[in-house]
């Protein structure tokens, strides 16, 4: 029996037999990706050209939604807020992640404990983190203002002031994300050949020079990968804002996805929300391309 099937296998063109089982292996995953990502992405573009809503029959309005977006001052504020948040989170997160990774890469005593502590915020659910930080930022009984008062400094309305609220959200996001950056950089550091460092040390290079002349350039691919992940993720910030500020005060923490959520599920204007989503996707693409360009220039 075994002999029979192996001769059959040998006679048949092998790629043909494998062909069909490969599709069977792929089908479940591809159906899910189609329903959860591909079709929605296409549907978003189509919907953005309509006035689809629960309120009336759907009509094609072509680019009306986009024209409306350009003159929508609330949306423009959301774009500005989102860009500020993205830059404010991404750069410090990468810098802190890199420093932590370099510090904990060697044979330092207690490195596992430090790594675990730095990674804990990544494991925390967004809602748990948001709820805890709301209390940390609490103007009257929170620990930050408590400490400030004991040091004789004025307490601040962290989430209640239009000038401070977005920055407070950024600080929380850096706290939650830099563990991810650290882990990814740690993996990148393992790929740098050890003899480069030994050669540099023998030549009398200083720690600072080794960091900037060897470590940072050798990690540029990892930095690029990380930057893309962080941009895609921070551009879509929603949960923390929904829980902590609800877009306020005075719209100072309204981001694109937050407005999209409100437009779709608050006012059931799905077409207009889809136009926002399309703009968001293009913005992420643009940021990624600009990021790539800057990286390339830095390398040469």
């Amino acid at each position: 029996m075994a002999l029979q099937s192996s001769t059959a296998l040998a006679r048949r063109p092998q790629s043909f037999t494998q062909n069909w089982s490969a599709y069977a292996f792929l089908t479940p995953a591809l159906i899910i990706l189609f329903l959860s990502l591909l079709l929605p992405a296409a549907a978003t573009v189509v919907m953005s050209l309509t006035d689809i809503s629960f309120l009336r029959p759907t009509n094609f309005v072509w680019f009306d939604n986009y024209i409306k977006l350009v003159s929508d001052s609330r949306f423009r504020q959301a774009v500005g807020n989102t860009a500020y948040y993205t830059v404010g989170v991404t750069l410090p997160t990468m810098a802190l992640g890199l420093l932590a990774a370099v510090a904990l890469n060697g044979k330092l005593r207690g490195r596992i404990v430090f790594r675990t502590i730095f990674y804990l915020p990544v494991l925390t659910s967004l809602i748990a983190a948001a709820v805890v930080w709301m209390y940390v930022y609490e103007p009257y009984s929170g620990p930050i203002n408590g400490t400030l008062t004991q040091l004789g400094l004025p307490p601040q309305p962290w989430l209640q002031s239009p000038n401070l609220a977005m920055t407070s959200l950024i600080v929380m996001a850096i706290w939650r994300d830099f563990g991810t950056a650290m882990i990814i950089y740690l993996a990148g550091l393992q790929d740098i050949p050890k003899d480069i460092y030994e050669a540099a040390r023998l030549d009398g290079a200083k720690t600072k020079d080794i960091f900037f002349r060897i470590t940072v350039p050798m990690l540029s691919n990892v930095t690029f990968y990380l930057m893309i992940i962080l941009i895609v993720q921070t551009f879509q910030v929603f949960g923390a804002i929904y829980v902590m500020t609800n877009g306020g005060p005075l719209g100072s923490t309204e981001t694109i996805v937050f407005q999209m959520y409100q437009t779709a599920f608050g006012y059931t204007e799905f077409g207009y929300a889809a136009a926002m989503s399309t703009v968001l996707f293009l913005a992420i693409l643009l940021f990624s391309i600009i990021g790539t360009k800057i990286m390339r220039r830095g390398e040469s």
Binding site: L35, L37, P40, A41, T44, A273, L280, F281, I284
Partner: peptide, 16 residues
Amino acid sequence: LLMVPAQSQIVPVFLI
């Protein structure tokens, strides 16, 4: 598809 911002797709995913 790694690059598609999944969270911004919640509206069509909901409708699907």
